[in-house]
């Protein structure tokens, strides 16, 4: 449904995308998971036909986003990361305007407006000006504007930003519902759990590059069916490598090292060697294989550190 090939894009002095490629199948929820500044919004903006890539191509439903721009855009619903609403107008007036731009009118427009308002429980406040809404309400309105014309393809850029946990779950449900109705979805987030819960396939993106693509299981397997251990301590002057027998070093920096171990006993042996060598260990963290582990392995960072 969506084929992205080798997208490159730089802004004045930042290389935002360094050759991003992926494909999204029809009816799939595809997650684009990455930390701040990874290039998620840049990717979505190019997919939505607003931003021009420096090179590479995007084809959507068999059409080129540049050549068949108008036709492609009609198929898509875009939910931007910023809250892009007219604050003076009410939710209803906003929906009427945006729905109108996608060709809805009359009874259809009225019906779809009611439908999406109910979806996020904004019906009661539908006639109040948006500027009187809470952040979460605006976020919900921001979401449904992208859904009003029942698009076949939906691009969602961090639609749960700054929203409370309960409302988040609600939004995830709505997205699942749209997918169940046959829409193809690209969903960007920096929340691992959202990607885990929601997405059929995930691409991990960082610094403008796709580091890994696959189903949750496939990506987790990348991290190895192994525990990921992170030790914080004082290893100055110690040859860590020699202590890590039987393990695989993933990442090391001042005072932190991460390695994977095939089984628990190996870890016991390693810790014993650490103590014998007189290494001051402040903290030991063991993680079971997970998306997060894969993420750390791929990016060398924990997502919440960004």
């Amino acid at each position: 449904m969506i084929d992205v090939v080798d997208l490159k894009k730089s802004y004045a002095d930042v290389m935002a995308l360094r050759g991003v490629s992926f494909s999204v199948k029809e009816g799939e929820i595809f997650g684009l998971l990455g930390p701040n500044g990874a290039g998620k919004t840049t990717t979505v903006s190019i997919l939505s036909g607003v931003l021009e890539a420096d090179s590479g191509s995007v084809s959507i439903a068999g059409m080129d986003i540049k050549r068949d721009s108008k036709r492609v855009k009609r198929l898509m619903g875009v939910v931007p990361q910023e809250i892009a609403l007219y604050e003076e107008l009410s939710a209803k007036e906003n929906l009427h305007f945006w729905g109108g731009l996608y060709g809805l009118s009359g009874k259809d427009l009225e019906r779809e407006t009611e439908r999406v308002l109910e979806l996020v429980e904004l019906t009661d406040r539908a006639n109040d000006p948006v500027k009187s809404y809470s952040g979460g309400m605006k976020r919900r309105l921001n979401l449904i504007i992208g859904l009003i014309h029942r698009p076949r393809i939906i691009l969602l850029d961090e639609p749960t930003l700054g929203i409370d946990p309960q409302a988040r779950l609600k939004i995830l449900d709505i997205v699942k519902g749209e997918a169940a109705n046959g829409s193809t979805i690209v969903y960007t987030t920096h929340y691992l759990d959202e990607a885990e819960k929601l997405c059929d396939r995930i691409a991990i993106i960082d610094r403008g590059e796709i580091l890994s693509i696959g189903t949750l299981a496939e990506i987790a397997r990348l991290a190895g069916e192994e525990d990921m251990v992170t030790i914080t301590g004082d290893f100055e002057g110690v040859a860590i490598d020699s202590l890590l027998e039987g393990a695989r070093l993933e990442y090391i920096s001042e005072g932190v090292c991460t390695f994977s171990v095939p089984e628990r006993p190996v870890l016991g042996g390693i810790l014993e060697r650490f103590f014998k060598a007189g290494v001051k260990v402040r903290n030991i963290e063991v993680k079971e294989p997970s998306l997060e582990g894969a993420f750390v392995k791929l990016t060398g960072r924990e997502l919440r550190d960004m």
Partner: peptide, 8 residues
């Protein structure tokens, strides 16, 4: 940006 992401 939102307007331009539609058919306008």
């Amino acid at each position: 940006k939102r307007v331009l992401s539609g058919p306008t």
